[in-house]
Amino acid sequence: MSLISAALRCRPPALSFTSLLARQFHAGQPLLARKGKEKKIPVLSKKQLAAKAKKKAAKAKKSIYDSEHMTLLDAINVLRAVEVASPNSTYELVVKTALGKGSTIPKGRYSLPREAKKASGDKILVFAEGRAAEEARQAGADIVGGPELADGVANGRHQATLFLCTPDLIRAITPKLGRVLGPRGLMPSERRGTVTDDVGGYIRKLKGTTEWKGDKAGTIRAPIAKLDFPVEDVIKNVKYFMTLVKRATGNIRDAQAEREKGGGPRPVIPITKVVLSSRQGPGIRISDV
């Protein structure tokens, strides 16, 4: 036997493609994960979720003015210094309230001791007939009529910023206008005083006043004074407006209004923050109003 033939006999047999596949892949059943080692997602309680949210809010980036509290006098002086090149700028007062679920959005009318801007005139529509209608026209109502005006209001032909109604017509207009004016806070109601026999007196009382109203979050904004006003006038305007807001939110009891509207004392809507700002100045939290 030659050396070449002996070497060929001793060489290991060639591996086929099938055998290579058999070596690379396991033919056994796949192993299933054990149930005991599955990671469970913890369910947090309401208290734990609140603590987690509080911790996250504490870490959130905040403005340097968020924790800054000043007296009204100091805030006025800071804003006057910032706006030294714009003496005709306007102070804006922002009042934030904790408007609870089901609470009525606070609103009212005001005439500042010294007006910051010319009062915008309301367009008044009155549902009245006979003598009450004539009194409304003499007092300055823009549109006066009976229940026939309801269709025009519903389809947008008659538009106004204030709607008044006499008690004898309120039932006639409510089915058509309740869903139209109600969501906008314009539906006449006895609680607001816009359903009255004395529509002429109500209109005369509104002359020279401006409406203020909170938004859906309960935030009230109002131009409160000009920067070139004397400091005493600015303070007087702010305190006057805050008194109105506190009465409307129940923070100051108005015994006369409660007697007129009935139903006892109204629920209190807490005031959480009062901020004074200007066009270019920062918003400064006021500590003494």
Rank of each mutant, 00 (worst) to 15 (best):
L162M: 15
S278G: 01
A150M: 06
P167S: 08
K261F: 01
V144W: 09
A132Q: 10
G185D: 05
K101T: 10
S103Y: 02
V144P: 10
F241N: 13
G108F: 11
G262A: 09
G283W: 04
T196F: 01
V180E: 01
I143G: 04
L31G: 09
Q256P: 00
I173L: 14
A81H: 07
V275P: 00
S19T: 11
D151S: 14
A136S: 07
S278E: 01
F241Q: 12
R80G: 14
Q48L: 13
S89I: 01
V153N: 03
G146F: 08
I124H: 12
L227Y: 02
V126N: 11
S86A: 11
D151R: 14
D228G: 00
V195K: 03
R191T: 03
A53K: 13
E115D: 10
V195I: 12
L3M: 04
E135L: 15
A60H: 00
D215T: 11
V82E: 15
S189K: 01
Q280S: 09
D122E: 15
Y91P: 04
A50S: 13
V94W: 03
V245A: 05
K56I: 08
E38M: 11
G193N: 06
R23N: 00
S2V: 01
I235L: 15
K96A: 12
I173Y: 11
V274I: 15
F229H: 13
P13F: 04
R204H: 09
K107Y: 07
R184T: 04
N88W: 00
K101V: 12
T161H: 03
G182A: 09
L79F: 03
P282T: 07
R131P: 00
S86F: 10
A53R: 14
K62N: 02
D254R: 03
T219N: 14
D288C: 07
S111C: 11
V274K: 09
D66V: 04
I203Q: 04
G152Y: 01
A154Y: 02
Q48E: 15
K54W: 02
I143K: 11
P188R: 02
G263W: 05
D168T: 13
L15C: 02
S120Y: 00
L72Y: 07
P267F: 05
K61Q: 06
A217H: 13
R179V: 00
Q48P: 00
